[in-house]
């Protein structure tokens, strides 16, 4: 079963002059597949990603995640799907500045509430260890480098063991070495752990690591 299926997905902003962000997008993501979405600036890459991640509501089409049609879900139901099945990595790490790296990674687990406190700490530490941040667990985001912050964000995205990771320009704010590191991590998550990755990127080097590329122009998928 496909992890994600979008059929004729569209998003139009209301107004005196309606603006179409995404139009009739058909996307299917299989388990363990690493897909990148590419296109010029303003083409609707991020808008499509937010629709696929249930951060935005489509105005047309269907979106099935893990076999469930999410059209008609209210805000809380969509939040529950995000919590259990989707992890996000953004261009800017978006970590909570008042919390340590470990607590940032624990945050989705605390909301899900399936693990006890010690198990949460253990899992968060293990995720940070696996991303080479064993010694950084108790540091706040402001004490970490850009690459380290993005790895913490990846660890947080993995906290609730999601089927799907959506990344919006994950290397956009990183230097070459850190970009390479993040690319390898995402590639391994797809190849070894069987997680599905959908990433928006401008970076051809990053895109070359993907299994498949989706091209989008003016809100329409062209390839």
């Amino acid at each position: 079963m496909s992890v994600l299926v979008a059929e004729k997905l569209g998003r139009t902003l209301d107004g005196e002059v309606p603006v179409t962000l995404v139009q009739d997008a058909d996307v299917t993501i299989e388990r363990g597949e690493f897909v990148v979405i590419r296109g010029p600036s303003g083409s609707g890459k991020s808008s499509l990603l937010y629709l696929l991640g249930l951060l935005d509501k489509p105005t047309s089409g269907r979106l099935l995640i893990d076999g469930k049609d999410t059209v008609g879900f209210d805000d809380d139901e969509r939040a529950d799907v995000r919590l259990r099945k989707i992890g996000f990595v953004f261009q800017f790490h978006f970590l909570l500045g008042e919390f340590s790296a470990l607590d940032n990674v624990r945050m989705p687990m605390r909301k899900l509430g399936q693990l006890g406190e010690s198990a949460q700490v253990e899992r968060a530490q293990a995720l940070l260890d696996s991303l080479g941040l064993a010694d950084q667990a108790h540091k706040r985001p402001s004490q970490l480098s850009g690459g380290q912050r993005q790895r913490v964000a990846i660890a947080r995205a993995l906290a609730n063991d999601p089927l799907l990771i959506l990344a919006d320009e994950p290397t956009g704010a990183l230097d070459t070495k850190s970009s390479e590191n993040v690319r390898l991590i995402l590639r391994e998550l797809a190849s070894r752990e069987g997680r599905s990755i959908v990433a928006v990127t401008h970076d051809p080097g990053f895109a070359s690591a993907a299994d498949r590329q989706v091209q989008i122009v003016d809100g329409k998928i062209v390839a």
Binding site: D76, R82, K111
Partner: peptide, 16 residues
């Protein structure tokens, strides 16, 4: 506001 958006993107509800 940004932190609220981050928490909601993770799956936190409005009530939280």
């Amino acid at each position: 506001t940004r932190d609220i958006a981050i928490l909601k993107s993770m799956g936190f509800h409005s009530a939280d």
